[in-house]
């Protein structure tokens, strides 16, 4: 009864909005896909990136095919194809190359890493490399024909605002705001200390660096990947601080372009260690904010939660 009256009282705006919202809320990945799509569109249309649609299609195809094949031979959970789309979009946003085969290789490496670089946890297996990050770094190392363009976004306040807000929306959904903040604040503080307090540059020197689209995209959309980050929140914060420190070192003292990407690559394997020390159930994609529905892997989560409760009690 109440449900019916609720429906009739709805404004027309809510009616219109309800189905896409329902779709978005059914999985945080839908938010990610939409936002990454918006960024890609903005890059191509407004920032005039040199990118042809064939490259994007090839990246998507390679990612989806790799994901499909690996899934076919493993758990047959085809929901994971959404993650492949996210990886493909992130690749097209971050990695530059003129050769279609190179970007396809990157897509393959990204997805394959999820199935190859795994470690055992209570609920089964977990991968520890951020797929896109792994794909990017390895492709650059192997082919020498791909590169990162940290300057491609320029730096303007509008972009910061856009990426920030959209990124926050995703992070609230996947509950990984802690990682983003820990990384960003540490990286900011280290850079501020060095550039402004020690070297004596003016603040706009420092701000210029932090309004870079690449850094924000990394902060809000890459390092915060809920699956490959440590599961326990304390561990995640320590882990993110480590990434920030390494990124700072690489950029300030080794002059590495796209330092955060390299830092994440090197710190990623420590996820295993953190997960062994700080026990916590693994993250599962699903409608985390809809209490009425059950997550697809709710059973597994429940089992592991029980396990951890028992374990903690015994300790």
């Amino acid at each position: 009864m109440e449900t019916i009256s609720l429906k009739t009282n709805r404004s027309s705006f809510e009616e219109v909005m309800s189905s896409p919202i329902k779709w978005l809320n059914s999985d945080p990945r839908h938010y990610q896909i939409s936002f990454l799509g918006i960024f890609l569109f903005y890059g191509i249309e407004d920032l005039n990136w040199e990118m042809n649609w064939l490259n994007i299609a090839a990246t998507l195809a390679a990612s989806l095919l790799t994901q499909f094949l690996f899934t076919w031979f493993t758990n047959k959970n085809y929901q994971s194809l959404k993650s492949a789309i996210i990886s493909a979009l992130s690749l097209t946003l971050l990695l530059k190359t003129n050769l279609i085969l190179v970007i396809m290789l990157a897509a393959f490496l990204s997805i394959a890493s999820k199935f190859i670089f795994t470690f055992k946890i209570v609920e089964g297996k977990k991968h520890f490399f951020n797929p896109t990050n792994f794909g990017i770094i390895l492709t650059i190392l192997i082919t020498g024909n791909a590169w990162i363009s940290p300057g491609q976004w320029g730096s303007n306040a509008l972009l910061v605002f856009g990426i920030g807000i959209l990124g926050l929306a995703v992070l609230i959904k996947v509950k990984r705001l802690d990682v983003a903040l820990a990384f960003f604040i540490t990286f900011c503080l280290l850079n501020f200390t060095r550039s402004v307090l020690i070297l004596g540059w003016q603040t706009d020197f420092f701000l210029h660096q932090f309004t870079s689209g690449t850094l924000l995209l990394f902060t809000f959309f890459m390092i915060t990947d809920p699956v490959s980050t440590p599961s326990h929140s304390k561990a995640r914060i320590v882990w993110a601080v480590l990434v920030a420190m390494l990124a700072f070192y690489l950029s300030a003292y080794e002059f590495v372009n796209g330092a955060p990407l390299w830092a994440l690559f090197f710190i990623s394997p420590t996820t295993i260690l953190f997960d062994k020390i700080f026990l916590h159930p693994k993250f599962y994609w699903g409608p985390t904010n809809l209490p009425t529905k059950e997550a697809p892997n709710a059973q597994a989560t429940q089992i592991s939660k029980t396990f951890f409760t028992l374990k903690n009690q015994s300790i």
């Binding site: 309800s18 919202i21 978005l24 856009g162 929306a169 904010n289 809809l290």
Partner: peptide, 22 residues
Amino acid sequence: ISVMVLLMLMAMVAQLGKRKVV
């Protein structure tokens, strides 16, 4: 972008309201 963000926020608020009702 402002319109986009506004739409999103409105949608999220709407969703939140709905959940409260539920």
